[in-house]
Design a protein around this nucleic acid. Structure first.
Length: 551
RNA sequence: GGGCCGUUAGCUCAGUUGGAUAGAGCGUUAGCCUCCGGAGCUAAAGGCCACAAGUUCGAAUCUUGUACGGCCCA
């Protein structure tokens, strides 16, 4: 981060002296940080294009000027066209430790979000049954994304949309009603389209205990009671599961409340302003084809009922009325066909394209020892998120979900997830953290004081290539976070942590810390250990994974 | 039939405004416990980045087409 800003300032001046303008987008952010040579190379290519020069020619010219700068050394290499390597002094990298220790749990945060108001809506499962493993993946991604965005300076609110109006909910109530009847000895069959799961019977049993008169009630009234009770019961179960998974929703938004307050009607009214709403066959339609969808969609059916689409439009309209600059929805990939029509609707409401984004979460393939575990919601035979958590733990599950980009399917093997080996990389990262803590503990026991003031003299012994490499890696943490925020991809954080943990383990095995020969070296390496610990902890926190001090 | 996503080492996967010799883990092979935590480390082998064309100084990355897989819609 600092390296880039630093480079930029100097290059900007040099380039200006040469009569060239720095492309504006370059002044915002440089995502690449593996090698600062890449950065310079990129820059040269862009500038060369602008100046109509051969890249190498320009590289040599810039290189010569850079060499004249006393703050860093640069050279244009003869090998390959247009390659320019820029090397920073060791002190430059060593200063990273000062920043980390000074900023502590804020290290890695930035202001690239610039306070933009973002809403992340995720999970939003119908409260008709417990959450399963697929919801877990969406929950982990959504929650972690929110944490990353917050850390990167966005103003984030997380939300769960409760689909508590509509057919599925009526079926839920009816299912419990039938089970309650059966439990009180009546021979009524449960229709196939009703919810079959064992949990429905459990709810009915519980409700009967509290309300023994239920089976005698008229069907309408009884079903309503069943629905109300079942939904609240299931919803509180969902809330508990999410809490156990360290997932937080700031707002629980009820679809029913939209319907009650007439928001759906108002949404359609507003849509009419786009001139794309029309009536046909007694139904009200939105001409989404005009905005990229592959066919037009019904808003209000001829029987007078609104479609799901209509209430979703009203809901999203409501989001923007609440002042969000960006609404991110996290959906199961099986809903991807829904994306074009929502985009079309947002456009019809007059919101810009970039105000609405959807992250699609691909399927989770649940396995046990390589054998697929059958899952079917209809038959009620599925492994719940709660089951998985109690078996493998929240840390392992979250890390696994956040170790893949969300748009590719994921194999989740329960047996592998219980193994404490590199099959299960969360332990590798946590172990690195525990190791660092252990060294710091031992230092304290030995009476070695850890100075709070990190001075350049103190970090100066960190001069080995391995050490400089780790310092560069630590310095890049902030970029990783802002990159993950920009691309809405929290999994970048996991990969970064794996890399950092690997560096620590490797370093640890060949460089003594407490047993180093010189007290100055001990202090310097302790500062390095502390910094690595802070960065791993900050990173794990963004993933919602614990950072144990011992294991 | 239309559409979305994917295809990178034997397996599971990273690789994001195009950049130097494409990276991890597992598995395989050969090593490392007198030493701060071996849940660890070192090294080797393993690649036509599905295929073909295009864009350019440069493509795993962008464009088009084809094949295969998953999903959605009709």
């Amino acid at each position: 981060m600092r390296a880039k800003q630093y480079l930029l300032e100097h290059l900007a001046r040099i380039v200006a002296d040469m009569g060239l303008a720095l492309p504006e987008k370059l002044s915002i952010e440089f995502p690449k940080d593996k090698s600062h040579g890449d950065l310079a190379t990129n820059l040269c290519m862009l500038l060369a294009k602008q100046a109509h020069m051969r890249p190498r020619e320009l590289a040599v010219q810039i290189g010569e000027k850079l060499v004249a700068e006393d703050a860093f050394i640069a050279k244009a290499e003869a090998a390959g066209p247009g390659f320019l390597n820029i090397t920073f002094s060791q002190g430059f990298w060593q200063k990273t430790l000062t920043d980390i220790i000074h900023e502590g749990d804020r290290f890695g945060s930035s202001n690239v979000g610039n306070g933009r108001k973002v809403q992340v809506e995720f999970v939003s499962a119908n409260p008709t049954g417990p959450l399963h493993i697929g919801h877990g993946r969406g929950a982990a991604v959504g929650d972690s994304l929110a944490r990353v965005l917050r850390f990167a300076g966005y103003d984030v609110s997380t939300e769960y949309y409760i689909n508590d109006a509509g057919l599925q909910m009526r079926i839920l109530g009816a299912s419990v009603w039938v089970r309650a009847q059966q439990l009180s000895g009546r021979d009524i069959p449960l229709p196939e389209t009703y919810y079959q799961g064992e949990y429905i019977t459990d709810i009915a049993r519980e409700l009967l205990r509290k309300n023994p008169a239920l089976p005698e009630m008229p069907e309408k009234e009884g079903t309503d009671i069943c629905f109300e009770y079942a939904m609240n019961d299931i919803l509180s179960g969902i809330k508990k599961d999410l809490a156990d998974f360290r997932v937080r929703h700031d707002v629980w938004f009820s679809e029913n409340s939209l319907v009650q307050t007439g928001a759906v009607d108002r949404g359609i009214e507003r849509l009419k302003g786009s001139g794309l709403v029309y009536e046909e066959d007694g139904a009200i339609w939105l001409n989404t084809m005009a905005l990229g969808d592959d066919k037009n969609r019904v808003l209000k059916k001829s029987n007078g009922y609104f479609t799901y689409f209509a209430s979703d439009i009203a809901y999203h309209h409501n989001k923007f009325e609440r002042g969000f600059d960006l609404a991110v929805d996290i959906w199961g990939a099986d809903h991807h066909g829904y994306v074009p029509r929502m985009r079309a609707a947002m456009k019809a409401l007059g919101y810009p394209d970039e105000a609405f984004d959807v992250i699609l979460i691909q399927l989770v393939n649940l396995l046990r020892d390589g054998v697929q575990v059958a899952m079917s919601t209809r038959s009620g035979q599925f492994v719940t998120l709660a089951d998985v958590l109690s078996e493998v733990g929240a840390d392992a599950a979250r890390f696994m979900f956040l170790s893949r980009k969300s748009d590719s399917p994921l194999d989740f093997d329960l047996e592998v997830m219980k193994r404490q080996s590199m099959d299960n990389p969360v332990y590798y990262v946590q172990y690195a953290h525990a190791r660092v803590c252990s060294v710091l503990r031992k230092a304290k026991e030995k009476g070695i004081a850890l100075s709070e003031d990190i001075t350049p003299e103190m970090t100066a012994p960190l001069a080995a290539p391995d050490e400089i490499a780790i310092l560069k890696l630590l310095d890049g943490f902030t970029d990783v976070i802002s990159g993950a925020a920009r691309t809405l991809s929290p999994h970048h954080v996991s990969y970064y942590l794996l890399e950092l943990a690997g560096s620590l383990h490797s370093y640890y095995s060949s460089y003594p810390v407490l047993n180093a020969t010189d007290q100055n070296i001990v202090q310097a390496r302790l500062a390095l250990m502390r910094s690595i610990g802070i960065v791993i902890r900050n990173g794990l926190d963004l993933l919602g994974v614990s950072a144990p001090e011992s294991m």
